[in-house]
């Protein structure tokens, strides 16, 4: 298939919202190449006419009725948050001081 470079690792880390330092990038280049080399074995098989299997069982759509069920008490909803006030989850500011950011 293809060989993974340092810039590929950096790109994928960005998509995955992970911060990779030099050492981690080096290590992942080696590991991902070794793992993906092993997976290249799949190319031995001709799967042109095979349907992909997305799930372990044939699934049909399962719906629920449009009925309101009880929500969580707000204290319980907010309880596990690293920071919150009486009503809301709180987070660091979304725009940083220079006006850029997310």
């Amino acid at each position: 298939m293809s060989t993974i470079s340092r810039s590929d690792v950096a790109y994928v880390a960005g998509l995955a919202q992970l911060d990779m330092d030099e050492a981690a990038t080096e290590r992942l280049v080696a590991e991902m190449n070794s793992i993906l080399d092993y997976m290249a074995k799949l190319n031995e098989l001709d799967t042109e006419s095979v349907e992909p299997m997305m799930h372990a069982m044939a699934l049909t759509n399962v719906f629920r009725e449009d009925e309101v069920t009880p929500s969580l008490p707000r204290e319980l909803a907010l309880r596990g948050a690293p920071t919150h006030d009486d009503e809301y989850f709180t987070v660091p500011k979304i725009l940083d001081a220079e006006g850029g950011g997310a």
């Binding site: 298939m1 993906l36 997976m39 799949l42 190319n43 098989l45 799967t47 095979v50 349907e51 992909p52 299997m53 997305m54």
Partner: peptide, 11 residues
């Protein structure tokens, strides 16, 4: 990778 794997999963 992903689509190929799902096809082999069928096999």
């Amino acid at each position: 990778y992903y689509l190929k794997a799902q096809k082999v999963r069928t096999l």
